[in-house]
Design a protein around this nucleic acid. Structure first.
Length: 491
RNA sequence: CGGGAAGUGGCGCAGGUGGUAGCGCAUCUGGUUUGGGACCAGAGGGUCGCAGGUUCGAGUCCUGUCUUCCCGACCA
């Protein structure tokens, strides 16, 4: 069966190409580093969107939409922001094509050169803050709690399916506040929203923490993040929430008049998650049979497959199956009854395993006689026969059990791949073996962080929130340290 | 942008020293099948990335060019 997928130790990008194409999730579109998300994959993204969007609204946010094109001049206003994104921007320079005078094709019309180039947004801070200036005059206009669902483009040197595509779908929240405290609280709240979603819906355990100065978002004073561990021992940043201070307010001159009548710059946050979450989902739960989806994200939680010979058997089975569909739907379970006669049962079994459908029910002639159905779990690959009358109670129970099992499995994997290093030798050895998360002392300087990256490819993934304080010495320099930070190789 | 590798039916590949394109999967037709990706028989589908050159003859040799992938620097 492993013919579809290479083993976990092998290169994941190869593994993805196999999996996603066969699993109908996505494929390369032909545009450099971009991808087509196929219907089944998009259905998973829609589930992610729907759940997150509900959480955003519950925390007081509203959706809005800002332009795709950003005038180049906007970018020069916040210095560190430019530094962070300048090297990976797609730029629009012309607005018209014309027939090629030398041949049959078309060429860019040189007469249609734009006065000012437009940048395809790599993120929307600049255009949003330019807009916020007009929205904010008084403390009564604050806070502004806005989210945008959009696509962005980052012309990365190297891309990787789902994890780093040139164009990706995401949401970006951009908030404006009267006080520093309120903005910090917002950034922390949204990190909590992400962490809760990723753990409870995606069944992926995450570390919550702060980025070091070197890993911080371009333009942020503080970057909060959630970090997950993949099956190959590499870390993946699954979401970030930034406290931007007054950097963007100052760059775009966004001030409000306080109760006391003074002019004050507003405080900002931004936060986002992307289709990268789909990569995290795949790489956390999948096995050699394909995807494994947590029930709360599965486009369909249960698939029913009839096993029959001839029209009469199918009719009899369909009657039972349709009864189950109705019963399960009434309980809020999403069900697909696949009675296509163009594919055989065995083919369907494999197909839905590849797609990660949590539960499969098979009904055949023997079941009709005995009043049973075969119930198979995707996560454990176990099968049992259940009385048809029990399906309605058994299925919701099992879906819960699968959801929990996936999280527990991922959590114990992470625990088994979390270590402490107390010397440089120990650290190097762990990193050579793709050990996962390694807690170690660090002297707090960017130079040391860079040096460690150069020597081992490991970076500081985060300084955990509420981190335990303990005396120690930096594994590289031996200088004093007050806490351990989390190192790992990352995507 | 540096360092490697590759472009041949939809996908994956084979095609020593040049001789007029083949295999597996997929697709289509007919039949037998249907409790873990069925089997048999037949069929369709390719200007070999592109442009030149050498040659009686180029998938193969030469030159140029484009693209993609992998390894670095960059990153949600």
């Amino acid at each position: 069966m492993a013919k579809h997928l290479t083993t976990r130790e092998e290169d994941y990008s190869k593994w993805y190409n196999e999996l996603v194409v066969k699993a109908d999730l996505a494929q390369n579109s032909g545009v450099r580093g971009s991808m087509v998300i196929k219907p089944y994959g998009y259905a998973i993204w829609e589930k992610i969107q729907a759940d997150l969007d509900r959480r955003f609204k519950e925390t007081g946010h509203m959706n809005a939409y800002f332009p795709l094109f950003i005038p180049k001049s906007y970018f020069s206003k916040e210095a560190s922001h430019v530094d962070g994104f300048a090297k990976e921007c797609a730029v629009v320079t012309h607005y018209r094509l014309k027939d090629d005078p030398n041949g049959g094709g078309v060429v860019v019309d040189p007469a249609a050169k734009l006065e000012e180039e437009l940048i395809v947004r790599p993120t929307s801070e600049t255009i949003i803050w330019d807009t916020y200036r007009d929205w904010i005059q008084s403390y009564r206009d604050l806070p502004i709690l806005v989210n945008q669902w959009a696509n962005v483009v980052r012309w990365e040197m190297r891309t990787r399916l789902f994890l780093r595509t040139a164009e990706f779908l995401w949401q970006e929240g951009h908030t404006a506040h009267a006080t520093k405290e309120e903005a910090v609280t917002e950034a922390e709240t949204m990190l909590g929203v992400y962490a809760d979603f990723v753990e409870n819906i995606m069944a992926i355990p995450v570390l919550r923490g702060l980025k070091t100065e070197g890993e911080r978002f371009a333009g942020a004073l503080e970057t909060y993040c959630i970090e997950a561990l993949m099956q190959d021992g590499k870390a993946l940043q699954a979401g970030t929430s930034h406290f931007l201070g007054q950097n963007f307010a100052k760059a775009f001159d966004v001030k409000y008049q306080s109760k006391e009548g003074t002019q004050e710059y507003v405080w900002a946050t931004s936060w986002g998650v992307s289709t990268r979450l789909m990569g995290a989902l795949i790489m956390t739960h999948s096995d050699d049979n394909g995807l494994v989806l947590p029930p709360k994200l599965a486009p369909y939680q249960v698939v029913i497959i009839p096993i029959y010979k001839g029209e009469e058997q199918l009719t009899a089975i369909s009657e039972v199956a349709n009864g189950m569909v109705a019963e399960l739907r009434a309980k809020g379970v999403s069900v697909k009854y696949d009675d296509r006669d163009t594919y055989k049962p065995g083919w369907k079994f494999n197909q839905y395993e590849l797609q990660g459908v949590p539960l499969r029910i098979a009904i055949g002639p023997k079941d009709l006689e005995k009043g049973t159905a075969e119930l198979a779990r995707r996560d454990t690959l176990t099968k049992e026969f259940v009385a048809q009358s029990e399906i309605g109670t058994k299925v919701p129970e099992l879906l819960d059990a699968i959801q929990n099992n996936l999280f527990e499995k991922a959590l114990s994997y992470r625990e088994a791949h979390t270590h402490e290093a107390n010397s440089w030798e120990e650290f190097e050895k762990l990193m050579k073996g793709n050990a996962g998360f390694v807690y170690a002392h660090w002297d707090g300087t960017t130079e040391t962080e860079d040096k460690i990256k150069e020597l081992t490819k490991a970076t500081i993934r985060c300084i955990p929130l509420n981190n335990k304080q303990e005396e120690g010495t930096c594994i590289l320099t031996g200088k004093p340290s007050t806490q351990r930070v989390v190192f790992a190789k990352a995507y």
